[in-house]
Amino acid sequence: MIEAAMIWNEPNNKSHWDPQIDPDWSKFAEMGKLAARAIHDVNPQVKRVLGGISPIDPQYIQRLAGHGLIEELDVIAVHGFPLDWNLWNINEWPQRLDEIRAVVPDHELWVTEVGVGSFGAEEVQEFGVKRTAELLIGKVPRVFWYSLYDLPQAWGATTRHKEAEGSSYYRHFYMGLIKEDGTPKLGLKAFEPYAGDLGLMQWFHYQDPRLDDAVAWLKRLGVKHLRTGLSWADSFRPDALGWFDRQMEALEDFDVTVTFCFTPEHLGIEPHHTSPPRDPQQFADFCAQMIERYAPVATNDARPALAAAE
């Protein structure tokens, strides 16, 4: 079920990693190396993926290589939102991929988040789905569209953008193919012909009420590849393992890339989910525990593993 484990999410985006605490990303690299080794020790068949970088920056990859992280990984991942946040044209996707390939020619390259919002008009997203499919399918082994659902307005966006910035913040709520009230957008119809090749990225919040409906939509669309997350911070919530078990069992029919990220406030150098942990080995231990629970080397079926864990 789990084909890949992603180490963090957008580490070069200050919405997800604090560069004031770790200005040269040496702390991130050390944590990433420990996590990559821990994942490999539990199941060497699970691909280890660098948390998708945003912006797409080859110099950042070279920086991590200098810290020794890249050699511990199997896949380099990038994120791109050229019609919403990035300052480049959607037609530049091939160029952006080539820039990363040039610095890591021996690694697989995946696009683990690509999206176009409907903030301005649903027709913009409809175009974006079709053009993204044309530009990326067949060019990289995995592409994940972000996302299936709009972010509910009441939940708030986990981002450095502030409401006073206008559309930069509010665009976060319009990236789904389905509206908050469950109404499909034009983009969903545009996505359906490509669903077998374009995977989907969907974050599921702790005790997310959308889980079962999401699985039904994914199967109806014919999605094969799904990227989601298991939050290290959420692992300290009440009955966290019960929620993780329910989530992963619901997703067992898909090839899953699972993202491990978010520092528990009480374990960070600063009390924030973007903070480097005081002890990076604790993050590595969490990654190992999740792989052992949901992707043990002895089986590809999550259900016996869950039963054994209980």
Score class of each variant (00 low, 15 high):
2 I>E: 01
2 I>R: 02
6 M>D: 02
8 W>N: 09
12 N>G: 05
15 S>M: 05
16 H>Q: 13
19 P>M: 01
20 Q>N: 12
24 D>H: 12
30 E>A: 04
38 A>S: 10
50 L>F: 09
53 I>T: 13
55 P>V: 06
56 I>S: 02
59 Q>N: 15
61 I>C: 05
71 E>F: 00
73 L>S: 05
74 D>Y: 05
75 V>L: 07
82 P>F: 01
85 W>P: 02
86 N>I: 00
87 L>S: 13
96 R>G: 02
98 D>K: 13
100 I>P: 06
103 V>G: 07
103 V>F: 09
110 W>F: 14
114 V>A: 13
116 V>G: 11
118 S>G: 12
118 S>N: 11
119 F>Q: 06
122 E>P: 00
124 V>A: 08
128 G>E: 07
133 A>L: 08
137 I>A: 06
138 G>S: 10
150 D>K: 04
155 W>R: 13
155 W>G: 00
156 G>E: 04
160 R>M: 08
162 K>E: 15
172 H>P: 00
174 Y>F: 14
176 G>F: 04
191 F>I: 11
193 P>N: 07
193 P>L: 05
195 A>G: 10
196 G>Y: 08
198 L>W: 08
199 G>A: 11
200 L>D: 04
202 Q>T: 12
204 F>H: 12
207 Q>A: 11
207 Q>F: 11
210 R>M: 12
212 D>V: 11
217 W>M: 07
229 G>H: 11
231 S>N: 10
233 A>P: 08
235 S>Y: 02
236 F>Y: 15
243 W>K: 02
245 D>A: 05
245 D>V: 03
247 Q>S: 03
249 E>S: 12
252 E>P: 00
257 T>I: 13
258 V>I: 15
260 F>I: 08
262 F>A: 10
263 T>W: 02
268 G>T: 06
268 G>Q: 07
269 I>H: 03
275 S>L: 05
277 P>M: 08
280 P>C: 01
281 Q>N: 12
285 D>T: 15
289 Q>S: 14
292 E>T: 10
295 A>E: 06
297 V>T: 01
308 A>L: 14
